[in-house]
């Protein structure tokens, strides 16, 4: 079987599963909110993987932009205009703007140092959300707002009243986002990113402005992570500083690794496994942190290629 056909089959399976999820989720013991969480965090992990897997740059601070998106949408709806689409635009713009500034400061660093600085910068936004009580609600989180029905002119999408409708709204945003990322990865720009991942020095010798490409990749990645953050806040009509703390960043990275960093759909699979596991563990034990921690270590030691990496290796072996 050739690779293109295989890719098409994989795409068909993924979309078929996603489109029908609200129907079979209940049958396997889940619920619609869990399905929405899978799609939203899957989008976050895939966005991170645009940078991690396809540019080869390790960011450990993506929760900051996820959280900025979340606070952006929440604060817009609460204080400015009760409009979901406008809130999303503001949230994404905030996250992307922050990424542009931070990205410009850190783009010269590589490897472990890049990772370290992204962790440290992530903490800035945590402290702002934590300290700026009057507006962000501080440690208690931002409450007192709800996602609003979307007026399309000819009809109203009541995404607040119907969970299933909200699921399809999220899925539509997800589809548009991953389509854009897929097109970017296939474009000459995306190929250049992969070239930088494979051999940065060679790419530099070929005259590619490497720093500039990494900056653009970082901003694109953070743009979509902010978008995921807005959806996450809309899902629970709530956000708190934990959405942008470093442990959330670690979760995104482990989702990407768990599913397979070198594949396009890998992080979505990783997110699905992680979300379901976390849901199950936190309802069964108080020591969920230990379980998740051990889970991290086991993946790193015994399963570093992730689910799709293993499958692919078995197929070629």
């Amino acid at each position: 079987m050739n690779a293109a056909l295989k890719d098409q089959q994989a795409n068909a399976i993924v979309w078929a599963l996603l489109l029908t999820m609200p129907w079979w989720m209940g049958a396997v013991g889940g619920y619609t909110e869990l399905a929405i969480r899978v799609v939203v965090l899957g989008l976050a992990a895939m966005s991170l993987n645009f940078l991690l897997g396809f540019t080869g740059v390790l960011s450990f601070g993506h929760a900051a932009y996820f959280g900025l998106g979340a606070y952006g949408v929440g604060m817009t709806i609460k204080y400015l205009v009760a409009s979901t689409p406008l809130g999303i635009v503001v949230g994404v713009a905030t996250g992307a703007l922050a990424a542009m500034i931070v990205g410009a400061l850190i783009v010269k660093l590589r490897g472990v140092y890049f990772a370290m600085v992204t962790i440290a910068f992530g903490q800035v936004f945590f402290f702002i959300a934590f300290r700026w009580n009057e507006f962000t609600g501080g440690d208690d989180g931002l409450t007192g707002w709800k996602r609003q029905a979307i007026d399309l002119g000819f009809t109203k999408l009541d995404i607040l009243g119907s969970d299933t409708l909200f699921y399809y709204f999220v899925l539509a945003v997800f589809a548009a986002s991953v389509a854009v990322m897929a097109i970017l990865i296939r474009s000459p720009f995306g190929r250049t990113l992969v070239a930088i991942r494979e051999n940065e020095r060679r790419a530099r010798f070929l005259g590619i402005p490497v720093d500039q490409h990494i900056w653009i990749s970082f901003v694109i990645s953070c743009f979509f992570v902010s978008l995921a953050g807005t959806l996450y806040a809309l899902l629970s009509n709530f956000t708190d500083p934990r959405a942008l703390r470093w442990d959330q960043s670690g979760n995104f990275v482990i989702m990407a690794v768990l599913g397979g960093m070198r594949s396009f759909w890998g992080p979505l699979i990783g997110a699905a496994i992680f979300v379901v596991l976390q849901d199950w563990v936190s309802s069964h034990t108080e020591n969920w942190m230990s379980v998740i921690g051990v889970f991290f270590m086991l993946i790193v030691l015994f399963f570093p290629r992730g689910v799709l990496g293993m499958l692919r290796r078995r197929a070629t072996a």
Binding site: V112, I254, V294
Partner: peptide, 10 residues
């Protein structure tokens, strides 16, 4: 980094 991250949790 991921391993020590998990270890920090534990």
């Amino acid at each position: 980094l991921l391993l020590t991250f998990g270890l920090a949790y534990v």
